[in-house]
Design a protein around this nucleic acid. Structure first.
Ligand SMILES: [Mn+2]
Ligand SMILES: [Mn+2]
Ligand SMILES: [Mn+2]
Ligand SMILES: [Mn+2]
Lengths: 160, 160
DNA sequence: ACTAAAACTTAGCCAAGACTTATTTTATAC
DNA sequence: GTATAAAATAAGTCTTGGCTAAGTTTTAGT
């Protein structure tokens, strides 16, 4: 995003139609990303918990910690927050369960994640990078972009 | 990413070729995203500082704070970290300058940001969403994906 | 030159998300 | 059924990145 030239009158400068967005517009972009990051941990955790329950029958703290690549105390603290915020239930020394709210969040998160992953694959990105990139990108994709991704993937599939 | 069925023998379950990645592989994905987030603030700040210098002649704390949508003390603290880590220089009550390291980071960050933005536009995403999504996505795009994005955008442009 | 406004810093608060070390509880194996 | 291993919790530390309130310095206007 290039900028038009400016010139100075005295100390401050006068803009001549540069393309810097207004401060408020730009602030809204960054605020939006910060907001997305607030839900990132929640989304990744409930998706993983749901995967573990489906794949192994239960979600144990030790497995969550190992698969997230963090220590058990760190996972424990986040699970406590998830419980506080109504996404999971858990009792001391017992495995973790999703609430209805948690299940819904897990399902929509997984669906979004898969759409992003399949889109990258359809674009021709190597599986390893598609996995890596989609794990981060999934949290920053608007509904519109998600729909565009989905349409593109479908089109590519039918072309084969 | 669907999982194959498991069945129980006693308390624990036995897997029958489900597609859950290994714990280590999955942990590597999350670690990679966490690593990307560590550089996110740095990248956004230096890009903005560079934009402000190009557009207005200087990067003032008050403008950084306003455009990031945060308070001045918060911006001030992050600028102190950027200075500690060698991206900017600053003196009390004076505006902020990029070091060579900061300039390089700003340039590569802006280039990556623009490639992601133009890719979304080429895909047909509305400008508002392209701006929003690219501000977050830019930090989670591998070099391979970036190259694929660039190629796609070029192809689309030549089709018009 | 003075005054008032704007910009910046300082200090202190908080939550999230990472860690280590130590303890307690539960599960497994013999 | 008891010993040992594994899992979970407890307690305390650190950094990042937010905030407010209050004070200081610089800039701008008359
Ligand atoms: Mn993710
Ligand atoms: Mn992110
Ligand atoms: Mn950017
Ligand atoms: Mn960004």
């Amino acid at each position: 995003m290039p900028y038009f030239s400016r010139f100075s009158i005295g100390v401050r400068t006068i803009s001549i139609g540069n393309t810097l967005p207004s401060a408020d517009e730009q602030a809204a972009l960054f605020s939006h990303v910060r907001e997305a990051h607030k839900y990132e941990a929640i989304e990744d955790y409930v998706e993983l918990i749901d995967d573990l329950i489906n794949a192994t029958g239960e979600a144990r703290l030790v497995d969550i910690a190992n698969r997230m690549g963090i220590t058990q105390p760190t996972a424990s603290k986040t699970i406590a927050r998830l419980q506080r915020e109504g996404y999971v239930t858990s009792e001391p020394y017992r495995s973790i369960f999703l609430t209805d709210k948690g299940k819904k969040t897990a399902e929509s998160s997984r669906e979004r994640h898969e759409i992003v992953y399949r889109f990258l694959m359809a674009l021709g990105v190597q599986e390893e990078n598609a996995r890596r990139d989609s794990e981060g990108m999934e949290h920053h994709v608007s509904d519109e972009t998600l729909a565009v991704f989905e349409r593109f993937t479908a089109t590519q599939s039918s072309k084969q």
